[in-house]
Design a protein around this nucleic acid. Structure first.
Length: 418
RNA sequence: GGAGGGGUGGCAGAGCGGUCAAAUGCAACGGACUGUAAAUCCGUCGACUUAGGUCUACGAAAGUUCAAAUCUUUCCCCCUCCA
C-alpha cells in the first residue's frame, strides 16, 4: 500500500527510516513533482568533522541519502568545517575540545571517504556533492551576521529548544558559543538553498531543533518552505544505540576497522534486530527481507549472515565482504584459521610466552589481564585452553605455518613466523 | 568583583587522617547455558611481579603527619546565588 505519492517517502516508510517530517504532505508533493518531471530534488546531510571516520551510528541517515539518490535526487553532503569549531550542544553535557586545523583537515578527508562508500559522487545531475560550511562562514562579519540572521531568531524560542533546555535543566554549562550553533546550522540550510536549490535536510532525530532552525529561517528570510526529514534513533533490544562493539565504535573506514570485524558486528546482531537491520543496512528488496526475518531459532543465523554480507558489501565492496564471510565460516563453522583474522608476524618463536603473544597482537592491554584470562580459561592456543601462564611458544605449536590464538569465543588471531 | 558548593577509576557516584587500588550502580571482559543471538547465573575489572611484594593513581603544586583521596596553603577549572 502506497500512502505517499513520492517513491522516496514510500521507501522510507516501508523500510523504517521515517521518524518525523516538518511537513509530510508538502514534502511528498514536492518530491513527487521532482520525480515526475525528472528534475532532481536536492537534499543534504550534515556532519561535523569531529572524527576521522563515520561509524555505524551514522549509517542510518547515509542510507536515507543513498535511497534519495536512487530515487533520482541529488544528495549534498555537508561537512561542518565551521560548525565543528563551535560544537553541537545536542545531546551533550560538555563543551567539546577544540580541534586543531590539521586535525580538522584530516577529519574532513576521512568523512569524504566515508560518504563516498554510500553515495555516488561526480558531476552528473544527481551525483552527490561535497560542501563545507567553512566556505561561507570563514569570512563572515559578526555584525553583518547578527543583523542578517540574528534578527530572525528569538531567544525566548531558542531557550525552549531541546538542546538548550536540557542543558539548562540539568544545570550543565552552556557557553554562548554553543548557544549559537543552531543559528549556524540554520544559516547552512539557507546557503544550500540559495546556492544549490536545496530544499530538504535529512538527519537523525536529535537534529530536529537544528533542522527547524533552518526551515524557519528559510521561511522568514527567503519566504520558501524548506523541508526536514528525520530518522528514528536505531536501538537494539536493550534500547542502546547501535554502533558499538566491544566498547569501540564500528567504523566505516577500513583503516579504522577491518572488514572482517565490520562483518562480525552485523553477524552478531540480536535476533530481534534482524528484520529492522536488513531493512536499514542493506539494499535487499522487502519481500526477500520478509522471508529472512521469518526464520526462527537457529535458522535466523542464515539471515544474519546475509545481513552481514550485504551490509559489508555496501561499505567495503563485494570482494571484502566475500573474504570476511569466508573467514568467518572457516573460523566458526570449520574451526579453522581464516585468512582475514588479525595477525602478528614474529621474527622467531624464541622466548615468546603466550602472554606476550596476546599482548603483542593487542587482544589484552596488560600481562595481568592475560594472566587473569588464563585463570578464567578464556585464552586458547590452537583451540586448546591455555592452563599454564608461563607457557612459551615453540615450533610444535605451528600448524600450517601459523599458530591460532583465541580470546573468548569470538576473538581469534594468527601468529606467523618469518 | 562578593558569597557559597564542587573537581574521585570508561561513566555515574560514595568515602572526608590509617582497615582505600578506593563502596555501589552502569558499561566492559571471561566462564556456564546456547545458535558467533537474547535472557539468566558465576567470576574478573590500575600496572609490574621471582606472587612475597613493589610502583603509579582521587584537578595541579607545595606542606603538616609515623601515615593523606581525606588536614593546610597556593594555583587551575566548573556550578549556584548576589553585584
Amino acid at each position: 500500500m502506497s500512502t505517499f505519492k513520492s517513491q522516496f517517502i514510500n521507501i522510507m516508510v516501508e523500510r523504517g527510516f521515517y521518524n518525523q517530517c516538518t511537513n509530510e504532505s508538502g514534502f511528498d508533493d514536492y518530491l513527487y513533482e521532482c520525480e515526475k518531471s525528472g528534475k532532481p530534488a536536492v537534499g543534504y546531510l550534515g556532519s561535523d568533522p569531529t572524527g576521522d571516520s563515520l561509524h555505524v551510528g551514522h549509517i542510518v541517515p547515509l542510507m536515507m541519502l543513498r535511497w534519495f539518490q536512487k530515487c533520482g535526487h541529488k544528495p549534498l553532503t555537508l561537512v561542518g568545517g565551521a560548525t565543528a569549531r563551535i560544537g553541537d550542544p545536542s545531546g551533550k553535557d560538555k563543551l567539546r575540545p577544540f580541534l586543531s586545523e590539521e586535525t580538522l583537515a584530516e577529519n574532513i578527508k576521512g568523512l569524504k571517504k566515508s560518504f563516498s562508500k554510500f553515495l555516488k559522487f561526480g558531476n552528473g545531475c544527481n551525483d552527490a556533492l561535497m560542501v563545507d560550511n567553512w566556505d561561507w562562514f570563514k569570512d563572515i562579519n559578526y555584525l553583518a551576521f547578527l543583523r542578517d540572521i540574528g534578527t530572525y531568531y528569538s531567544v525566548n524560542r531558542m531557550l525552549t529548544m531541546d538542546s538548550v533546555k536540557s542543558r539548562l535543566e540539568r544545570e550543565q554549562p552552556m557557553s554562548f558559543l554553543e548557544f549559537n550553533y543552531m543559528l549556524l546550522q540554520g544559516y547552512d540550510f539557507c546557503e544550500l538553498y540559495k546556492n544549490y536549490g536545496c530544499r530538504c535536510q535529512i538527519a537523525g532525530s536529535d537534529q530536529w531543533g537544528n533542522i527547524t532552525s533552518g526551515t524557519e529561517l528559510g521561511r522568514r528570510k527567503y519566504d520558501v518552505e524548506l523541508f526536514g526529514f528525520t530518522s528514528p534513533i536505531i536501538t537494539d533490544s536493550n534500547g542502546k544505540k547501535m554502533g558499538k562493539s566491544e566498547g569501540n565504535a564500528v567504523w566505516i573506514n577500513e583503516e579504522k576497522l577491518s572488514s572482517y570485524d565490520y562483518y562480525q558486528y552485523f553477524r552478531n546482531i540480536g535476533d530481534a534486530e534482524v528484520g529492522k537491520c536488513l531493512r536499514i543496512y542493506t539494499d535487499l528488496p522487502l519481500d526477500e527481507i520478509k522471508k529472512l526475518e521469518a526464520l526462527k531459532d537457529k535458522e535466523i543465523n542464515e539471515a544474519k549472515k546475509i545481513l552481514a554480507f550485504e551490509a559489508t558489501k555496501i561499505c567495503r565492496g563485494e570482494e571484502e565482504a566475500q573474504n570476511a564471510q569466508t573467514t568467518a565460516t572457516n573460523v566458526f563453522e570449520q574451526g579453522m584459521a581464516g585468512g582475514e583474522l588479525p595477525s602478528l608476524t614474529l621474527p622467531s618463536l624464541e622466548n615468546i610466552s603466550v602472554i606476550d603473544a596476546f599482548l603483542q597482537i593487542g587482544f589484552v592491554n596488560s600481562k595481568g589481564e592475560a594472566r587473569r584470562l588464563i585463570k578464567q580459561a578464556g585464552l586458547k592456543l590452537n583451540d586448546a585452553v591455555i592452563t599454564d601462564e608461563n607457557y612459551k611458544l615453540s615450533s610444535q605449536d605451528v600448524i600450517n605455518g601459523q599458530i591460532k590464538i583465541s580470546q573468548g569465543k569470538k576473538k581469534h588471531g594468527l601468529i606467523k613466523v618469518k
